[in-house]
């Protein structure tokens, strides 16, 4: 189509404004994280952190590191368990056509729709009986339920695209199904493994409902609870709260910078399957 360069740049201007509006709350979070306590309630509020302070970030370093560590461990655990469970399932559903496979896909689709609060209550009742409340493995297991159905569906969609010739070549070379999966399917599915891992990590990192119900009373509390306690306890220190929020947003930012195309893939794959 014919668009003159000047008109295109005009659109870029509008686009910048729209993006700026959408991201303004994010900017405000960063701005407040650098604002001094005495400027916090200034009227009008300071739009840029003049006389900025690092007090908020000092508070993060002093108080939030254990929470961040827990979140990181829980995130890694969730990723490992999710990929280990979902990749073989995706391979089977995409390439081996098991009897009852479509029923399982259906169950997975439905499973994604169950509200978290219901899962949390069921997990709470079970964990209480088993005595695994407030443990890392308990929280990891619960967090994987956020990602596993999505992961299986993603793996199925991506692995359907692996050419059958490739798998048959492996069979000709004498590889069994397990060998084929391990040495052929997994290596060529690197993109989907990355996508699934990124989302599994992000979701477990962001989880609040399982954290507050299953880990709220213990030593292993993730960063979402760190922020939540901050809001509850010291309503005055908003620079510390916002600094923690900024730090808690780092995984999302890293994900967007390093893996932008996987993110879009993940978002749309959940909705528009082919």
């Amino acid at each position: 189509m014919t668009t003159s360069p000047s008109r295109a740049w005009w659109k870029t201007g509008v686009g910048l404004v729209l993006t700026g509006l959408m991201l303004f709350p994010v900017y405000w979070m960063i701005n407040v994280s650098f604002t001094r306590d005495q400027d916090m309630r200034a009227t009008p509020p300071h739009l840029i952190p003049i006389n900025g302070t690092l007090d908020g970030y000092r508070a993060v370093l002093d108080q939030q590191l254990p929470y961040l560590g827990t979140s990181f461990l829980v995130g890694l655990g969730t990723v490992a368990l999710t990929v280990a469970l979902a990749a073989p399932a995706g391979y089977a559903l995409a390439k081996l056509r098991p009897p009852g496979g479509s029923a399982l896909s259906f169950v997975l689709l439905i499973a994604q729709m169950i509200p978290g609060i219901i899962m949390a209550m069921g997990f709470y009742a079970i964990y209480l009986t088993l005595g695994v409340l407030n443990t890392l493995p308990g929280l990891i297991l619960a967090d994987t339920t956020l990602a596993v159905p999505f992961a299986v569906l993603i793996f199925t969609a991506f692995m359907s695209g692996i050419p059958d010739e490739l798998l048959q070549a492996a069979v000709v070379d004498g590889a069994g199904r397990l060998r084929t999966f391990w040495s052929v399917v997994l290596p060529v599915s690197r993109n989907s493994i990355v996508t699934v891992s990124l989302f599994a990590f992000l979701w477990s990192w962001s989880d609040f409902i399982f954290a507050s119900t299953l880990a709220g009373g213990g030593d292993h509390q993730p960063i979402t609870l760190g922020i939540y306690h901050y809001i509850g306890n010291n309503n005055q220190q908003w620079n510390a709260i916002m600094a923690t929020a900024v730090v808690a947003s780092i995984p999302a930012a890293v994900l967007l910078i390093l893996a932008q195309r996987y993110v879009s893939m993940g978002v749309t794959a959940g909705a528009v399957k082919d």
């Binding site: 668009t3 295109a8 740049w9 659109k11 870029t12 686009g15 910048l16 729209l18 993006t19 959408m22 991201l23 709350p25 994010v26 405000w28 979070m29 407040v32 992000l202 990192w205 962001s206 609040f208 960063i223 979402t224 922020i227 939540y228 809001i231 908003w238 709260i241 916002m242 929020a245 808690a248 947003s249 999302a252 930012a253 994900l255 967007l256 932008q260 993110v263 879009s264 978002v267």
Partner: peptide, 29 residues
């Protein structure tokens, strides 16, 4: 248009942020 890809990617940020981050930012706003 120029930069449209980048800007579109940036707009994803609110969706990727942990909900507690968005919720507490809005609380303060």
């Amino acid at each position: 248009f120029p930069l449209s890809r980048t800007l579109r990617a940036l707009i994803l940020v609110p969706w990727l942020l942990p909900l507690i981050v968005s919720a507490s930012t809005w609380s303060w706003l």
